[in-house]
């Protein structure tokens, strides 16, 4: 996200302000070296499969919505700030932490190593390449949360609420996905 003053509009101000609070320290220049596949414009089947494995650990059950396949279809547009090279770097980073290909790692091992990586990336002093994981993590979650299973089932997307109840107990608020918040504060 370009946070220079000139790039900001009222709507982006709001979104940017929101994001800045949610992830202090996350918004910074993307550093790191592109290690391979810089010229590639599409994800390989191997990488798509890896993304779906990573998604299964990140949000259990999300792999059924094939977020890797969805991302493969939109990555060339820069969707959610993704690029093929950035995904490549992310996979390399994850596999460095895991100590091998994600598809051959045990679920327990993959889960514990991904958790460790995640904690470090969101820690007080994140490593230089933490953005690669943070961007991929956000994109995988967004891909799942906007899917029929994610939005429609887990998050109870309600396309026609039909009423406005301005003040209800929090435990009775069960709609966790709506297009207004998703888009305006993306």
């Amino acid at each position: 996200m370009d946070l220079t003053r000139k790039s900001l509009t009222r709507r982006r101000f709001i979104g940017a302000a929101f994001i800045m609070t949610m992830t202090p320290g996350v918004i910074k220049a993307v550093a790191g070296t592109v290690q391979k596949d810089t010229a590639a414009s599409a994800l390989s089947q191997e990488w798509i499969a890896k993304l779906n494995v990573i998604a299964s650990i990140l949000v259990p059950g999300s792999e059924k919505t094939l977020p890797g396949n969805f991302i493969a279809g939109v990555v060339s547009s820069g969707w959610q700030e993704l690029s093929v090279s950035q995904i490549g770097r992310s996979i390399l980073l994850i596999e460095k932490w895991v100590g091998g290909p994600v598809e051959t790692a045990t679920k327990e091992s993959l889960s514990s190593r991904l958790k460790a990586l995640d904690e470090e990336c969101f820690g007080a002093v994140p490593p230089q390449d933490s953005d690669d994981w943070i961007v991929l993590k956000s994109a995988l979650i967004t891909a799942f949360c906007s899917s029929q299973d994610g939005a429609g089932k887990l998050l109870h997307y309600a396309p026609v609420p039909a009423q406005w109840l301005p003040d209800i107990p929090a435990e009775k608020a069960q709609i966790f996905y709506n297009d207004w918040l998703a888009m305006w504060f993306s």
Binding site: P60, S138, L155, F176, N178
Partner: peptide, 30 residues
């Protein structure tokens, strides 16, 4: 109230993250 995105932008994976996606965040006033 902030929605699932607040969970997407913080630490956490697995079942804990999945649960957090359905937690409402704090109120925001703009």
């Amino acid at each position: 109230r902030a929605n699932w995105k607040q969970a997407a932008r913080g630490a956490g994976i697995g079942d804990e993250l999945k649960q957090n996606l359905t937690n409402q965040g704090k109120w925001r006033l703009l």
